[in-house]
């Protein structure tokens, strides 16, 4: 397990809901409701954080939530217990997924792959635990392909990464590099906040 990343998110856990639980959640509520409404079967939710997204999950889905931070999971536990379906939480690094191959019908992420240290290796681990043709669905903020947004994000990235996420990643490219087939990319804000739908090879 990546101790540096774990410590960073353990430190962030205390103020996470205060910073993200109001404006950002209100802003993205319509997009997230639609995004999570497609959950079905057995689902792996990578980086459950403090569980802010659990309120959007449709009922009666079997969900395994993982996070690298114990402190985040402590805060997520009451929200997971209130979920109307079978949901378990585990302290686990996405790089080291120990589930048998082909366990999950779907894997969901929400603002996760901006912070994973080795995104392609982690996405390969995700692909392994998905069933053949299983779905990867991501709600992520990424870098931009367009000036001046790309220049701005590149300029600010060294500061952003000190306290939290990287803000200039090519997550769509990383999904491809990890061996997924892209189905759809929808932009929610500029080409920076987006939903990505991809499938594992059949």
């Amino acid at each position: 397990m990546d101790a540096l990343t774990r410590r960073k998110w353990d430190r962030a856990a205390g103020a996470f809901d205060f910073i993200n639980g109001l404006g950002a959640e209100r802003r993205w509520e319509p997009v997230k409701r639609e995004f999570f409404s497609t959950m079905h079967g057995r689902v792996l939710f990578v980086a459950v954080g403090t569980g802010l997204d659990i309120r959007y999950f449709p009922p009666a889905v079997q969900i395994d939530g993982i996070d690298i931070s114990d402190k985040m999971l402590e805060r997520a536990r009451p929200r997971a217990e209130a979920y109307a379906g079978p949901m378990t939480l585990r302290h686990l690094d996405v790089h080291d997924l120990d589930y048998p191959a082909g366990t999950f019908d779907q894997v969901f992420t929400s603002c996760t792959f901006c912070s994973v240290p080795d995104p392609v290796r982690a996405l390969e681990a995700v692909r392994r635990v998905l069933k053949p043709a299983g779905e990867l669905r991501m709600f992520e903020h990424t870098g931009s392909r367009y000036f001046p947004f790309n220049a701005l994000l590149n300029l600010m990235n060294p500061i952003a990464r000190l306290t939290g996420p990287e803000i200039n990643r090519d997550t769509v490219g990383n999904v491809r590099r990890a061996g997924f087939r892209l189905v759809e990319v929808r932009h929610a804000y500029l080409d920076v906040v987006k939903t990505i739908h991809a499938v594992a090879p059949a």
Partner: peptide
């Protein structure tokens, strides 16, 4: 200052530019 109420990612583009 505004991020908690309005979300930081969406504020940063117009504000920083």
């Amino acid at each position: 200052a505004f991020g908690r109420c309005f979300g930081m990612i969406e504020l940063q583009m117009p504000a920083m530019l």
